[in-house]
Design a protein around this nucleic acid. Structure first.
Lengths: 201, 201
DNA sequence: GTCTATATTTGGATAGAC
DNA sequence: GTCTATCCAAATATAGAC
């Protein structure tokens, strides 16, 4: 084939420039989708709205995502990556209680910062959606990070399960019953004291 | 008017017999709706499906409920009443830890027994629905009962908030990450020991 | 009260021109 | 890649006969 004369840039492979533009538009679409779900709820997202937000018509989105669920799926991966980034920037000390408190504050803040994201990642009540196995592996990665952070101080499985329950409970109550406030956030330090005393018995 | 000749049973007022039949059909419709949401998810409920389940056509449901959300609303009230019934049958002892454990087991069991009901009552992620003020008062009633049960042993507000966080967290993790199992259920007694030791400091 | 028929809306997805 | 036009399906709700 003639194409093989220039194997580095074969016909049909978009140039790096074109690919970058494509990726940029994809990112713009996702940003618009996030903006909409934050404003109107996760389940209220429609392709028409997303398209209008980025100055397109709905069918044009199909050049970037094969379906609506593919958009949700990409948002899911983004959320997982944000979670990992959130956690990696928390310093680890040699004091278990300090780390527990910092970790729990980070977790609850991550959840309350964006309830729509919380619903997508952790509640999974979206009608027809579930993440692809590939995307779900990102969630596993985030959870692993969380567990590794905590197992540094020697906690076992059951104790980690108790801790995740306290975490989701605090975040859930804060979001459901005092959105924008701090009624459960201000219980975090005390809750971690309780937890720490218990597991150090 | 001639109707006034028999003021006990005026025209246009259905007889007790007719009213009872009407109520029975309403109950049948609600039972069908519960059955469907348990099988296919809370958000997947459609009037056609409900009607088919009770041997009707969709428009006939409008003789019993003015809208789909009115059905959700009636289910919401039913769920709240079931919650109250669940709690009223729990014996109160003079031992705080015993009551904490029994109360928390009851709460988590109530949630895990019917995840669709849990979602309707506590998560409130249903697209266009929110309970009418009248129905919501039933939820307040349930929460009041819960608080009264616990305040018997002298807990203050912040402590109750911590306890509700632990409760929703345990229920949420059990439903989301181990449906049908007992991975978080078996942590309840230990969690209540932790809580009790902490607040009795 | 129940039905058939239908209005209305909505929204995901596709075809094909440019 | 983007558009217009359209399809298709689902689902709530209403009108009016019986």
């Amino acid at each position: 084939m003639l194409d093989d004369v220039r194997p580095d840039v074969p016909v049909r492979t978009p140039t790096s420039r074109v690919r970058k533009r494509h990726e940029a538009t994809r990112a713009e679409i996702l940003a618009a989708a996030w903006s909409l779900v934050r404003a109107h709820g996760l389940a209220a997202l429609t392709l028409r709205d997303v398209a209008r937000e980025v100055g397109m018509r709905a069918p044009s989105l199909y050049s970037y995502f094969p379906s609506k669920n593919a958009i949700y799926d990409a948002m899911y991966v983004q959320g997982c990556r944000e979670f990992v980034e959130y956690y990696e920037q928390i310093p680890v000390t040699d004091d278990a209680l300090t780390d527990l408190r910092a970790g729990m504050h980070a977790f609850v803040r991550f959840c309350t910062d964006d309830p729509a994201r919380y619903q997508l990642l952790f509640q999974r009540t979206l009608p027809g959606f579930e993440p692809t196995p590939d995307s779900f592996s990102w969630a596993v990665r985030g959870l692993d990070l969380l567990r590794r952070r905590l197992s540094v101080h020697g906690y076992d499985e059951d104790v980690l399960d108790l801790l995740t329950a306290i975490g989701t409970g605090l975040a859930d109550q804060q979001i459901s019953n005092d959105p924008g406030g701090d009624r459960w956030i201000r219980l975090i330090d005390d809750a971690m004291t309780m937890f720490h005393n218990h597991v150090s018995r």
